[in-house]
Write a protein that binds this DNA or RNA. Structure first.
Length: 277
DNA sequence: AGGTGGACCCGAACGC
DNA sequence: TGCGTTCGGGTCCACC
């Protein structure tokens, strides 16, 4: 499941391959990818564009073109981007789009569940696009204790559900939300608005450190995730609670438990992460 | 308005 | 062995 660390890893690999290149051919093979826009019109707009750089905002990968156009790729559940040399494409029923660069290499978009999206946004519309959807970058200077405390205040929803809200902070998904709450020693069902200032500060540090750990290890490969060379990440070995029902908590040895919060599987340590106030 | 639950999608895991 | 059923996950949308 690509969350911020996985998308950042993809970005860092894809940027040198795409920056400065021209898109020679664009084939979009799944109409879901661009809807409500028809695939051929998106493909037509992309063809001939020159790539300035590849960046990231939350879980979105952003390909910026010299024309001011931006391609926003969201991988959702099972999307992956592969960079393959000229002629090295293999038969793959899950291939949803192929972009051929002017060095002959292909950027292949693959997505088993077809949840991923490609959107085109012009430079002038970009800020409005982000501000309607995404909160601050968790690893950037805008993500502060004061801002987080303000956003949490009055919220009665479980803290886990609130940190998954991309307008609260951009980039956490189910894995890193559980990991961050474990690091912060907060029970996932705690009402978000009841966190003391000290706990908010702990949560902020925990969000940053869990995401940084994921980036350092180039993402977590639980099943589908691969970087653009096809290599898996290593973060799955370093996860403290996610998916580890019955295994000992790395901090206290108590068996990890699984519950459901807001419809999502949620792992936590019942001793380190007490329900609290 | 904030909170909750279903829809979307499809392979894997599970149950009989 | 083989079938049907359930699950999960990010985001949007309808509903309370």
């Amino acid at each position: 499941v690509p969350e911020l660390p996985e998308v950042e890893t993809i970005r860092s690999r894809l940027a040198p391959a795409m920056a400065g290149r021209c898109l020679m051919r664009v084939a979009i093979l799944d109409s879901r990818l661009t809807r409500p826009e028809p695939p051929h019109s998106i493909a037509g707009e992309l063809r001939g564009q020159h790539v300035s750089d590849v960046s990231r905002r939350g879980k979105y990968l952003v390909v910026r073109f010299e024309s001011g156009l931006h391609l926003l790729v969201h991988l959702r559940m099972t999307g992956t981007l592969l960079h393959v040399p000229h002629g090295a494409r293999s038969v793959d029923p899950y291939r949803r789009a192929v972009v051929t660069l002017d060095d002959g290499s292909d950027v292949v978009y693959r997505d088993v569940r077809r949840f991923g999206t490609w959107q085109l946004v012009r430079k002038e519309e970009l800020d409005a696009f982000w501000s309607g959807r995404l909160g601050p970058e968790p690893l950037g200077p805008a993500f502060t204790s004061a801002r987080l405390a303000d956003a949490l205040s009055g919220r009665r929803a479980p803290i886990k559900s609130v940190v998954l809200d991309q307008r609260m902070v951009a980039g956490l998904g189910n894995i890193y939300a559980d990991e961050a709450l474990w690091r912060a020693r907060l029970h996932p069902l705690r009402a978000a608005g009841t966190l003391a200032p000290e706990e908010v500060a702990r949560l902020l540090r925990a969000v940053r450190s869990s995401l940084s750990a994921g980036i350092e290890r180039q993402g977590a490969t639980l099943r589908d995730y691969r970087d653009p060379t096809g290599a898996p990440g290593r973060m799955q070995e370093a996860l403290r609670v996610y998916g580890r029902t019955g295994e000992p908590c790395p901090r206290c040895g108590t068996p990890i438990e699984k519950i459901h919060v807001g419809g999502r599987g949620t792992w936590y340590c019942p001793r380190c992460q007490k329900p609290g106030s």
